[in-house]
Design a protein around this nucleic acid. Sequence first.
DNA 1: CGCCGATTTGACTCAGATCAAGGTTTGTGG
DNA 2: CCACAAACCTTGATCTGAGTCAAATCGGCG
Lengths: 243, 243
Amino acid sequence: MSKFKEINIDHLKLSCSECNLRELCFPHGMKEEELSNLDAVVDQPKPLHKNDFLYRDGERAMAIYAVRSGCVKTMTESANGDEQIVGFHLPGELLGLDGFADGSHTCNAIALETSSVCELPLDQIESLCHRLPGLQKQMRRIMGKEVNNDHKLLLLLGKMTAEERLASFLLSLSARMEERHWKDNEFNLTMPRQDIANYLGMAVETVSRLFATFQSEKIIDVDRRHISILDIKRLRSIVGECE
Amino acid sequence: MSKFKEINIDHLKLSCSECNLRELCFPHGMKEEELSNLDAVVDQPKPLHKNDFLYRDGERAMAIYAVRSGCVKTMTESANGDEQIVGFHLPGELLGLDGFADGSHTCNAIALETSSVCELPLDQIESLCHRLPGLQKQMRRIMGKEVNNDHKLLLLLGKMTAEERLASFLLSLSARMEERHWKDNEFNLTMPRQDIANYLGMAVETVSRLFATFQSEKIIDVDRRHISILDIKRLRSIVGECE
DNA sequence: CGCCGATTTGACTCAGATCAAGGTTTGTGG
DNA sequence: CCACAAACCTTGATCTGAGTCAAATCGGCG
């Protein structure tokens, strides 16, 4: 890394109305004049480095967050110490809703790579929602989406085979890439195999073997963290979305 | 069943302020004067019979619901037709948040036995939240709780053995019985073994065998749907909550 | 170059699924 | 009130998907 890259440009705040993630993020569905109100309270703290915690289980919840760049994983911890990753959050996706229940976070949020986030302080949400009906509606939509996501993951963990899980994971990533107007058939995984395995409720070895199988069947092409989807129909048929 | 029991008393609406579930339900944390506003919009439709749908996947979401009596399960359906139960809702517990994302439900809600619910119409929530800050706060808390619940279930499905899952399930029920000031060491399961198995991501036979094992180890006493917890410490140690 | 963590591959094992059968309870119609 | 069917639940025998263990290989970095 060249020293020149470290010049601090973090204070150059990007306004919500100019953010190209706005349709995926807080601003979705809000009117132009509402956005300036939003801008006024949204903060953009220093970027996180790989493995930095955005927040920790047990910590007082101060804000909800939107990923601006990079990728953040959230994971719950059980009484006996094992962990379950409950989400990988891409740019434009929100996290921190777990703090709504009793004011403290119940999971850890960790950057998978250098990542930046926007934060919406909790103590402002109340009055802001009061003033901006668009935000209140969006908050509900966001929470509903989170619940639906979790339900999909429950179905995955409860009912799918390892093969279906990995196919489902790749399809989900692909769809989210498309939402962001990135290539949906070629992307890099930001997380190690270990994290994929954890998220999908299986062993690393199984993930590795399945990647190899998919590759040999010409469904995907894998090169370390780089994925090319060669046959998306096959992937869909694996998870049962027959056309 | 005597005919005399069927006299319709459903129209005798119980106000939120007099409901003994109020501390678990919508009214939690709300002021006395706010409750009368809540009462004005909360509806109590006809009771559901066993296996009746409260709402269906794909239906337009009209309200969120609180169970008043009985028990309602919610389940998601996958593309290829298999189903995952994502929650059993006891009196005082809420459901229907899955409809917030895009206005349509994404799961089925089905009564496990004769059950009654209260409903809070969605089209009223917005204005009501605007007038009652207590409700808005409670809505957030409720959604946070739902998210946290789902995360616990994800951990269960992703990381626990069958034995741990069943123990965890019994402990969760016991804790929720206590919240309701019912006996926490003796209760009836409202759901068939099949549903328990589905919820916990395992086969019916495994549930049955584990009940037998727990019984033989004097941890619980099972008689069909009736459960007595004999050794709650053992249950806790099984799920890893070592003291 | 040499080390360390991430990933892959192979061999073996096992928790829990599936298959098969029998028992029990509940509901229904006569 | 009984007979019969349909659910529901249990138990035993067997099978298998995916976990575990072990070891080799790869890739990046100081």
